[in-house]
Design a protein around this nucleic acid. Structure first.
Lengths: 208, 208
DNA sequence: TTGTCAATTGTCAGTGACTGTCACTAGCCT
DNA sequence: AGGCTAGTGACAGTCACTGACAATTGACAA
């Protein structure tokens, strides 16, 4: 990345991504065409598709980064922690250090606003959910290795991650539809929801 | 539904759907164009889009039916059952009575093969996951009402359903990638996975 | 410095999903 | 029988995306 060519490429990619996110968060995803993005950066449409597999990939680029970040956080957890504890502490740690990861591309607010765009754009939400599945699979493998179990023989790794993923998905949803769209808010929701998993699964909820 | 017009419409829709499923399961989803389907039924492409919002909707029509079926099964559970018990018994009941629902449109094998197509086609899987979210929301509302809690104040209904949904998603996945693609197999997997949720969430998995 | 090679880009043509419009046809109803 | 309306086909257009080829431009050695 020190040759002129590579720096140029880097700059083009960043320009495309930043412009795309800018347009998506202001004008909306569906109302932004790939041509709009390419024109704004002054490259051909074809070039956009050389950098991104599709419009979706650009829209989800930040989320991709944070999921990778989360995966790394899980890997870095001390091995003596129980699986669910490791997951919980890894997410919380991820939220706390998220800015550092995201800021290299765009301000955190853009990341946060993109979340709302995703949640309110059916095709984006769909794509996001599918990608989350892939992340979950990777995490399940990490957990399986930590605990020394065979991921194909023992369903617990994938099961734990699926449950955890379900809770996180719900967290994202209620954060993005709620009033407070700050990082602190999503952190607090995470804690709150994870605490409630146990109660939600056991017996009746009736208080009478 | 007894005028000639309506019978004709019904027939056109069924022909389109059956043909679409036939082509998707033999040739594959991506290798089937809407024109292929329309031509095979001898209607214009425009007509296809008058019956289905898109290619995806046709591909997921059977799954839509079974999800509605499942939702109904949840509603029909005796109210004294604990939420998670109601969900578990409702899915199992759904699998058992699935044929009746599906057979009106296509043989159950088509339904089962479509599941594999969905699981192996990224854009379909994505769309399927998103629709599942909508079903989950509906189920959460049913549970909340059963238990007499406020769905917006108490996170437990959505939480329970999210966890349950995560497990079901995993069940679908491992069924569709596994060897036995029968209804019995998916039923057995459902039972097995639900039993393992508890163990997966608690403490360490190490046996040493 | 220059010439060669390889990477990057633009242009163009094409496909496939989907939408709006409008005229036409065919059941429906009196 | 004749008017009304739902359903259809034909057509044109948009947008995401792809393959192919030619033009450009940086890299690197002679």
């Amino acid at each position: 990345m020190d040759t002129l060519r590579e720096r140029k490429k880097q700059r083009t990619r960043e320009a495309l991504l930043r412009t795309a996110l800018e347009l998506f968060t202001t004008r909306g995803y569906e109302d932004t065409t790939v041509d709009d993005i390419a024109d704004a950066v002054d490259v051909s449409q074809r070039t956009f598709f050389r950098y991104f597999a599709g419009k979706e990939e650009a829209a989800l680029a930040l989320q991709e980064m944070t999921e990778t970040h989360f995966l790394r956080a899980v890997r870095d957890r001390p091995p003596q922690e129980a699986p669910m504890d490791a997951l919980r502490l890894a997410v919380l740690d991820s939220w706390d250090t998220l800015s550092e990861v995201v800021e290299s591309v765009a301000p955190v607010e853009v990341f946060l606003r993109m979340y709302q765009v995703i949640e309110s754009t059916p095709v984006l939400l769909a794509a996001h959910l599918r990608r989350s599945l892939e992340t979950e699979e990777a995490i399940a493998r990490v957990l399986a290795e930590r605990e020394g179990v065979d991921i194909d023989a023992d369903p617990r790794p994938r099961l734990a991650v699926a449950v955890f993923g379900g809770v996180m998905r719900l967290t994202e949803r209620s954060w993005s539809t709620g009033g407070d769209t700050s990082l602190d808010a999503i952190r607090a929701l995470t804690v709150q929801y994870l605490e409630q998993v146990g109660p939600a699964l056991t017996g009746s909820w009736r208080t009478d």
